[in-house]
């Protein structure tokens, strides 16, 4: 029984990472109606920026902050230079553009930093705490606390600031947003910038856990999509709950279904997506998607 709960705890830790990337996906989907397949590769790029800073001798936490800031600028530029011109085109065009972004970041990382595995130091101490029979290491607690902080921050920003209201208004009705004086393009760019910042956090959490290479986020972006789709791609709460569900189910399947092997384990979140889409196409938390002009 203790083993079972320990798996759940570990699963929540991984789930928090999927959730932070999932939140980025939801943010972009809600503000620009785009499923950003490049989100994971953008996060890998963020991890490389942090690695580069560390390599240049910048203190670790500063490196991480700089990486987040650079990522946000890159997110804004990705929107302004590329996504904006296709935003109102058909879905296939948009999918292809985000896949293009995926390849662009992936090859840029490879060209800049090579395909060898690098290691990004962890920002958390190597301590662990026991609560009853369960063990929590600092990394796990830190990851969960960061996710909680991000969730609270996003809630306050979106629900309780002028900028947040303007972002929600632009997502809800582009024409009316402009007609009340909201600079629509700027809002979309800010949405992409914030999402890139959230994605960067997930990249910075994953980097030290795995090894840093251009394909680091390959499986994780799939888990993040699974998490976001559990929430219908439109619900922030859904992405967080979805992240936990995916993380826990993955941990449990690794613990109790080892005969599946690591190749089949990765199918689990996909099966979850399919199951959710069959049972409840709008997701467990999603609202019906509002068609925007």
């Amino acid at each position: 029984m203790q083993y079972f709960f320990q798996q759940i705890v570990n699963g929540i830790g991984d789930g928090a990472i999927y959730a932070s990337l999932g939140l980025a996906l939801v943010l972009i989907y809600r503000t620009t109606n785009i499923a950003n397949f490049a989100q994971g590769e953008m996060a890998t790029f963020s991890a490389y920026i942090a690695w580069q800073m560390v390599d240049w001798g910048v203190p670790l936490w500063w490196s991480f902050l700089i990486a987040i800031a650079v990522s946000m600028v890159v997110g804004v530029l990705a929107y302004l230079l590329l996504v904006r011109s296709v935003q109102h085109r058909d879905e296939l065009t948009i999918v292809i553009v985000t896949l293009g972004l995926f390849l662009a970041f992936n090859s840029f990382d490879g060209a800049m930093w090579g395909f060898l595995q690098l290691s990004l130091p962890s920002p958390f101490p190597e301590k662990s705490f026991a609560i009853g029979a369960l063990r929590f290491n600092a990394e796990l607690l830190g990851t969960i606390m960061i996710l909680i902080a991000i969730s609270i921050g996003m809630f306050l920003l979106l629900q309780h600031t002028r900028l947040g209201t303007a972002l929600r208004a632009s997502a809800s009705n582009a024409t009316s947003a402009m007609l009340v004086g909201i600079p629509f393009t700027a809002m979309m760019a800010i949405g992409w910038g914030l999402a890139a910042g959230l994605g960067a956090v997930s990249g910075l959490l994953v980097g030290p856990k795995l090894t840093l290479d251009p394909n680091m986020m390959g499986a994780i972006i799939i888990y993040a999509f699974a998490a976001a789709v559990v929430g219908g791609l439109t619900s922030y709460r859904g992405a967080v709950v979805g992240g936990a569900i995916v993380g826990i189910s993955q941990a449990l399947s690794m613990a109790y279904l080892p005969w599946l092997g690591s190749d089949l384990q990765i199918l689990l979140p996909l099966m979850l997506i399919v199951a959710v889409l069959i049972i409840k196409p709008e997701g467990l938390f999603g609202s019906t998607v509002v068609i925007r002009v």
Binding site: S176, A177, M178
Partner: peptide, 28 residues
């Protein structure tokens, strides 16, 4: 000038068929 600039200059346009922000509250 774009619609957002013109709105900031002081023209409020209530479009045909309402155009409220349907997933924002009345107060928002």
């Amino acid at each position: 000038r774009g619609p957002d600039q013109i709105a900031r200059l002081g023209i409020a346009h209530g479009v045909q068929g309402r155009g409220t922000f349907s997933d924002l509250t009345v107060e928002d």
